[in-house]
């Protein structure tokens, strides 16, 4: 049985150093949602020298725009969205102390460099498994940008939320390594 590592944000540099691409991680505790429009607003605030509406140091942002919750459910389907669209913003947030990002799909060289420079991690969750992943989210509350609807920033309480490390501080990339292992020329 493969080793599974447990993480509870906020996380520090020492915890980041211990993780490598391919490690399976279960996250329990508080994480924040944020995707395209919310990222733009966060970086605009930083550009203006203003305070962010959420704590960022040591935290994890999940790139997701959940479906509305049915009565009796904490949240609707909530799988990851494609991460490259957040590439223009992520290095700035990592510089501010963000430690983790959860999404799907590859990141730009700039983001990978920022992950190494600022001691961050990029995790993948299974895209399109939104119904399954929603069961690991126990609580969801909008904390900023309610006008953005599905794109509003939510504080999530998660339990054993399953992710895999894709990019680590050592420059590894699970997408590149995985594809190279199975490619047939």
């Amino acid at each position: 049985m493969e080793k599974v590592i447990r993480l509870q944000p906020p996380i520090d540099d020492e915890q980041v150093r211990l993780l490598k691409a391919g490690d399976r991680v279960l996250i329990t505790g508080t994480i924040y949602t944020g995707r395209d429009a919310a990222h733009k607003r966060l970086v605009d605030l930083l550009d203006q020298g203003k305070e962010l509406p959420i704590p960022i140091k040591g935290q994890i942002i999940y790139f997701v725009g959940p479906a509305p919750a049915k009565p009796g459910h904490a949240i609707g389907s909530a799988g990851p969205t494609t991460s490259y669209r957040m590439d223009p913003y992520s290095p700035r947030l990592l510089a501010e102390g963000l430690k983790g990002m959860i999404g799907k799909g590859g990141r730009s060289p700039e983001v990978k460099a920022a992950i190494q420079k600022y001691n961050g991690l990029y995790f993948a969750a299974v895209g399109g498994a939104g119904a399954l992943l929603s069961q690991r989210i126990k609580k969801a509350e909008i904390v900023a940008y309610e006008d953005l609807g599905p794109e509003a920033i939510r504080r999530l309480e998660v339990e054993d939320f399953p992710v895999v490390v894709v990019n680590d501080i050592y420059g590894n990339d699970l997408y590149e390594q995985g594809v190279a292992a199975y490619r047939r020329d």
Binding site: G65, A67, G76, S77, A78, G79, V126, A129, A131
Partner: peptide, 14 residues
């Protein structure tokens, strides 16, 4: 995931 979505009548994907 597909089985959960069908049973709970929630979207397969958000």
């Amino acid at each position: 995931n597909a089985a959960i979505a069908a049973a709970d009548q929630i979207p397969i994907c958000q």
